[in-house]
Structure formats: structure tokens, C-alpha cells
């Protein structure tokens, strides 16, 4: 009675990697197309909700532990703040990589252009760090709430 049907499971296992790919695509292309750290993080967290719905929380516990999530969140926050601090020679949140011809350091031509991955300065790095933070935070919220709901239900019986 409590298992989801076979069809939903199969389709969920097919959809899940594509959701991940699309979420990371949205995070990485935040400086070119609509998207960015928050949006991509929400999409990846929704992928985790999909796993939770289709396979139950035991499947997630095999893959992701709470310590992983807290480590991810810490990495995201720390890299975000340190990226902001690195530009402190001018101001906080100064984009020191733009125009330096280093990684992500190209400047696109003014006006309409087809979009180049190697532009944007620190913005892609900040997108990645905020994305890690949002993924970890939202998945932690969803996982804890679902665990709580389940434990309540067992006690009622």
C-alpha cells in the first residue's frame, strides 16, 4: 500500500539525472541566460524532493548524509564571503576578475552577442557558491520536515 507504483518509479529514475543536469546548467549559465544561484539551487532541491517522493528517504540516506549538507552549506557561505573579501583593495564585492584575462576574465563586446562562457569575472564563482548554499539549505529543510511528518505518523499508530 505504501509503495509508489512501478511506473512512477521508472519515470522518476529517468527524469532525475536530467533535472540535475538542468539545475547545474542554470547555475553555471547565470551570467548569460536567465538563472543563477538561487534558481538553480531551487531546481536541484526539487530534484531531491523527487527522489524523496519516488524512492523514500532510505534511498536518500544512502547517498546524502546530514554532515554532507552542513559541509556544503559552510563551503558555500565561506567561499561567497571570501570572494567578496578578495576585492577589498577597492571595495567590498569588487569584481576583481573582470577584464583580467584570467579565468572567466573576458569582457564581451557591447550589445547583442551569442554569449561566451568565459566572461563575467567573479559572478560565475559567486553563482556556484550561492548555489551550493541554497541546495544545502533547502534540501535540509525538506528532508527534516519529511522525517518529522513520518515520525509523527508512526507515533499515532
Amino acid at each position: 500500500m505504501s509503495e509508489p507504483s512501478k511506473i512512477v518509479k521508472t519515470i522518476a529514475s529517468i527524469i532525475f539525472p536530467f533535472t540535475m543536469v538542468f539545475g547545474i546548467y542554470v547555475i553555471l549559465h547565470g551570467h548569460l541566460t536567465p538563472g543563477g544561484g538561487f534558481q538553480g539551487g531551487a531546481i536541484v532541491a526539487s530534484g531531491i524532493v523527487l527522489l524523496l517522493v519516488a524512492f523514500g528517504s532510505a534511498e536518500i540516506a544512502k547517498r546524502v548524509k546530514e554532515s554532507h549538507l552542513s559541509i556544503l552549506e559552510s563551503i558555500g557561505a565561506l567561499s561567497f564571503i571570501s570572494l567578496a573579501l578578495l576585492g577589498l583593495s577597492t571595495t567590498f564585492f569588487y569584481n576583481f576578475l573582470a577584464g583580467s584575462n584570467f579565468i572567466f576574465g573576458r569582457i564581451p563586446p557591447f550589445g547583442s552577442n551569442p554569449g561566451d562562457m568565459n566572461t563575467g569575472g567573479v559572478l560565475p564563482l559567486m553563482n556556484i557558491s550561492v548555489g551550493l548554499k541554497v541546495i544545502a539549505g533547502l534540501s535540509a529543510i525538506v528532508l527534516v520536515l519529511s522525517l518529522f511528518a513520518r515520525s509523527r505518523k508512526q507515533r499515532k499508530r
Binding site: 529514475s13 539525472p17 553555471l28
Partner: peptide, 22 residues
């Protein structure tokens, strides 16, 4: 060429995340 390099990294991450599911 940038997209292809990033695609390789991404595919490794996704492969690790969803290896037993797909």
C-alpha cells in the same frame, strides 16, 4: 571549447550523484 570542458566536469558530478538510480 569552454562549454565542452565544463560539460565533462558536470557529467562526472551528475554521474556520481545518480549512479544507482538511472
Amino acid at each position: 571549447i569552454d562549454e565542452i570542458i565544463i560539460g565533462v566536469i558536470l557529467s562526472i558530478i551528475v554521474g556520481i550523484l545518480s549512479r544507482g538510480i538511472f
